[in-house]
Amino acid sequence: MYNSPFLRQKASVRRVMVTVLVAMLPAIAVQVWLFGIGLLLQLAIASAVALACEAGMLALRRRPVARALGDGSALVTAWLIAVCLPPLLPWWMIVLGTAFAIVIGKHLYGGLGQNPFNPAMLAYCVLIVSFPALMSQWPGLHGGDAAAQLHWIAGGERTLDAMTGATPLDALRTGLHGGGEVASVMQSAAVGPAFGHVAGAGWEWVALAWAAGGLLLLAMRIITWHIPVAFLGTLAAIAGLASAIDGAHFAGPAFHLLAGGSMLGAFFIATDPVSGATTPRGKLIFAAGIALIAWLIRSFGAYPDGIAFAVLLMNICVPLIDQKTQPPVFGHKLGKPDGGAK
């Protein structure tokens, strides 16, 4: 992953991580604008817990604490967790998720560079499996004043329906299950303003902000084009095919690309250099697999979004993908392995 000389490695990790954090800022701004300031508090909580857990685990493992803390990787994990969770979760949930990601997801596997699973997605999955009801409560657009939001995060009594609205993915799935069809569900007043536009009023702005941050990462050469293009292309192709065959029961590609965590997943999560595939062809297969599984879970599953599960499932396949897609050594021709290899 990192080139020699190794003296530059720490600085390089730090540069990468800081760039990623900067690239997340536009989307964070849009989410705060749409859903309220709760997200800022969640970011602060997640960052503090991530740094504390990172320091604690490094000390336990007798590694230099200051240098590893300074690389910013724990902060990136923390921020990714905070932005993909509903912003009004009670504080102990984000503490639990972040601590699980850093302690079990990262350090028990050997720390930065060794973890087979994306730590942020592990946190998301632990929380969604454990608290599916809370995890599907997103605040309505511009819903609730700051004081009420902070009250919720502090663990205050939650008045259901007062401030929450279903995400577009959730509303669509519930509507389809109730016997509706895509077009009617999307226009139905019963699901509220969630379907004002392509993927729910506001949600497309979140998606576009993530895409903008992703383009910055591409321009800065932090990530390569393979994973975003393969992920979004496959997702669009499958969604397009399914909605062409049965438009009443499957949403189209525009919806899938702009709803839920598609853009966040394409540019910031699937591109994790540690838990993702590393060869160029491998990246294409890895990302296409995530898109396929995510679409399947969204279309037939029970949980609000499928990206996290899809990423973890494809993380498991990474060693196999990398092994099978190793580029041939220079000087050897493809398809003509020499000597004993069969």
Binding site: A133, D170, T174, G178
Partner: peptide, 10 residues
């Protein structure tokens, strides 16, 4: 019903 899980109750 419980918000977020209407289908089972329905």
């Amino acid at each position: 019903y419980m918000s977020g899980a209407t289908i089972s109750a329905r």
